[in-house]
Design a protein around this nucleic acid. Structure first.
Lengths: 125, 125
DNA sequence: TATTGTTATACTCTATAACTATA
DNA sequence: TATAGTTATAGAGTATAACAATA
């Protein structure tokens, strides 16, 4: 499992490198795109990224002008995509689609779907 | 996939920690147990560990008295388990069995087997 | 020329601890 | 007390480059 994951992640990392994004960064952007306004802690919990590691990650995305913070609370901000952020997320989604057909070409759609379900069972066990 | 792998590997690392072994170290010991006499480069190729990273790993196992080298070539040695090494490999195999039932408890044996096959397809694609 | 073992090095990912400010 | 953000730090895993000795 570790090695299959390694193969897939290496291809994904390579693909996203084209946009100068790490997998974790692209994931965060995608989550913000799905539903703006979440705090970085909340996004971290959803993605399994720790608070401590979200801080520099989000700071970098903000510095690149992809994400902006809107103060919601004295201690937290809701995150949303800038125009540039929305544009890059669209490109991310396209690249991920290409990546998926490339990596899962050895599997039928049914097998792909089954794999997702089996992995989800393990993740939540 | 990355996160499912993370869950499994975290449990395995924790389990093997009882023997003060990393996953990579236990893997190397198991491969040597399966067929003594291989060189460390050969073992590295089989496990996807680079030559450069095998050196300190094997040196550590040798220092712990688990592995010994038998000069085969002017530049390489065949690796085999010491008595202590054989003993620990047996404990490793038991711990891995326990780990597998624990982690794959959410899957039926058929699903477990299917998962193995799907992952193997991706690995070699 | 190619391979083995080795050292040094660096980057990523992940994890914990501790601190501040706020709820 | 609990939560959000932050900083610093440490442990793994993984990767490349370079070298000596040997095939």
């Amino acid at each position: 499992m570790r090695r299959a994951s390694g193969v897939v992640m290496a291809d994904l990392a390579n693909t996203l490198g084209e946009l100068d994004l790490k997998i974790s960064e692209a994931s965060v952007l995608a989550v913000i795109g799905d539903g703006p306004g979440r705090t970085q802690s909340s996004i971290g919990r959803r993605l399994g990224i720790q608070r401590a590691n979200m801080a520099p990650l989000v700071a970098k995305l903000e510095q690149r002008g992809l994400v902006e913070r809107t103060r919601s609370d004295g201690r937290s901000s809701g995150l949303s995509l800038t125009e540039a952020g929305s544009a890059i997320v669209e490109r991310v989604r396209n690249l991920i689609s290409q990546h998926e057909v490339r990596v899962f070409t050895a599997l039928t759609p049914d097998e792909h779907e089954l794999l997702r379900k089996l992995l989800a069972k393990i993740r939540s066990a």
